[in-house]
Simulated scan of single mutants.
Amino acid sequence: MVPGIYDFDVARALRPRASLLRSGVTASGIGLAVWEQRRGEVHYRAADHHTFSLYLRGGSQVREVSSTAVRPNSAGSPGAICTLPAGDCFAWNNEGYLRWLHVYFRDRHMSFASGSTSTTPARVLFGCDPALRELCQRFLLVLDWADPDQNSVLDHALMTLLARSLAIENVTSDFRAPNGGLTGAQRRAVEDTAETSLADRITVRDLAEVSGLSPRQFSRAFTVSYGTSPYEWVLRQRVERARDLLADGEKARDVAVLCGFSSQTHMIRRFRAVFGYTPNAVR
């Protein structure tokens, strides 16, 4: 029997403290959920499954906490990745807005994905993996989790995610830049700026300024960290925001303005280029 999303310990812990926007459970028993929260604290205690998390929006005001202290250098940001092994405990406090993807899986799923019988994901807090983030955004979040015709693509994407999650780069507590990329603090500044300015024109110079770099230095470091150009990344943020607003029932012409497109036609063209379908399919 395929379990429901609230058969997973972490989902049950979140139920009274966050809003479930979307969920599904595959035939093999992997759970997927998109959650949203505006301020709150959550404790995960010794779940009987592993959890993968990708921050989709917000997160700069999320802090890991313990019973005795708050770790001031441990903070999230859009695109941050966390993995929590089964049996581990984790508590976080959120003082702002947060939307995130969760994937719940067990030892048998990880063994199948990795080809090993003794593989357990490491505990990662606010890690960075542009390729894994892209996999989630281009496949997992676009697929219809309830459509049987998409099961094979969904399963393949999930197995790739689990195998890749074994090699996630864990961001250090002082947020050093990985191999010439942006530091964690710079990424948060860039992502927060984009999050609050999508209705406006956003230039490379604007993003470079908040990161404390020249436009040339910034573009190079940004590409190292995100695997794409600042222009393409900002465009992706615009169309993803547009998809969310359309799903919430906003009118297309209003969404185009709110997301910084020059016209509704411009939004439709960019939307189709990224997702492969028009905004009408979201309604």
Rank of each mutant, 00 (worst) to 15 (best):
S197I: 06
D206H: 14
I202N: 08
S225F: 08
E195Y: 07
A221D: 03
F222T: 00
S211P: 07
V224N: 07
E195D: 14
L198K: 11
T193V: 01
G212Y: 00
D200R: 10
S214T: 15
P215N: 00
T203L: 14
S197Q: 12
D206R: 01
S211M: 06
S214R: 11
E191D: 05
Q186S: 12
S197C: 10
S214P: 02
D206L: 10
S214C: 06
Y226V: 00
S225A: 11
V224Q: 13
R188T: 08
S211H: 06
Y226K: 03
S225I: 06
L198T: 04
V204P: 05
T193R: 06
Q186A: 08
R201H: 09
L207I: 14
S211D: 07
V210H: 09
Y226F: 15
R216T: 14
R201T: 14
T196E: 06
P215V: 00
A199Q: 12
V224E: 12
Q217E: 04
V210I: 13
V204Q: 14
V224M: 07
F222I: 04
S211V: 10
R216P: 00
T193S: 04
D206K: 11
V190H: 02
V190N: 07
V210M: 11
G212S: 05
Q217R: 13
V224L: 09
Q217N: 13
Q186M: 14
A194Q: 09
V224S: 08
A221T: 05
E195R: 09
L198I: 08
T203N: 11
D200T: 11
G227A: 03
R205A: 12
T196Q: 05
T223G: 03
L207F: 15
R201M: 08
A221W: 04
Q217C: 12
T196H: 04
S197M: 11
